[in-house]
């Protein structure tokens, strides 16, 4: 029994178990126990951020390079980094905008490559969503050749139709007065809703698995009530 008690009071497990129960209690009602662990969580996460910033960025890329590898020019990053803190003063506030601006630029500059590498292949892949618009020649001896061909063509046209409807829905500059445009856009929105429903349905399993795993942690890892 004492062995079991010792296991239950193992600090790492106990911290995890109490924390899990506290966080999950939120769904029933916000309470002090939740609030306590919420603040512990925020504090730990902030400390971890600080530690990660040092160990994964500043130490290897800045400090070690400057102190050990003789790359003295890194010191010039310090005044630039200090410009962020201009926000706190009237006089130097614009300086912070300057360094924010550099970051806006960096964020924006990757757009061309991103567009070409990630997006354009999707455009060309739409030419032939299922390899081609016309079905491949039927395999000899297939008793359902006609059915295959019909479904092939239908699926392809469905694919095209959906892309067009959705795109029309997302046109902003044209007032949806024309009945054809209006109808197409409406259809586009309906297809979107249908598609969102499918995403909803296919996400549930992973989310439930996480809760199951938490219960496994409580009842198996910690309380050892479940034989797994």
């Amino acid at each position: 029994m004492t062995e079991y008690l010792k296991h239950l009071l193992d600090p790492v497990l106990l911290f995890g178990a109490l924390g899990t129960i506290a966080i999950l209690s939120l769904v029933f009602k916000e309470n002090r126990f939740y609030r306590l662990f919420e603040h512990i969580f925020l504090g730990l996460a902030l400390g971890y951020d600080l530690e990660l910033t040092w160990t994964t960025v500043l130490k290897p890329q800045f400090w070690d390079a400057m102190v050990h590898d003789g790359q003295w020019a890194w010191i010039m990053a310090v005044p630039v980094g200090l410009m962020f803190y201009g926000v706190y003063t009237q006089r130097f506030a614009w300086m912070s905008r300057l360094v924010f601006g550099i970051f806006f630029g960096l964020a924006a500059g990757t757009a061309f490559q991103d567009f070409s590498a990630r997006f354009m292949p999707q455009v060309t892949r739409s030419f032939a969503p299922n390899k081609s618009l016309i079905p491949p020649p039927p395999t000899p001896g297939d008793p359902h050749a006609l059915l295959h061909q019909v479904s092939f063509v239908l699926n392809n046209f469905l694919f095209l139709g959906i892309v067009v409807c959705v795109l029309v829905y997302f046109l902003f500059a044209f007032e949806q007065k024309n009945r054809a445009v209006l109808r197409t856009a409406q259809l586009g929105r309906w297809v979107l809703m249908f598609s969102f429903g499918a995403i909803f349905g296919s996400t549930i399993m992973t989310r439930m698995a996480l809760l199951i795993d938490r219960m496994y942690f409580i009842f198996h890892d910690w309380l050892r009530l479940v034989k797994g």
Partner: peptide, 24 residues
């Protein structure tokens, strides 16, 4: 952006027509 969308839609249509014709 809207004009760009129409342009891309045009390219897709050309592509689709070409690939379909090619199978014939």
């Amino acid at each position: 952006q809207d004009y760009c969308k129409l342009l891309l839609l045009g390219i897709i249509l050309i592509g689709i027509i070409s690939t379909s014709l090619l199978t014939l």
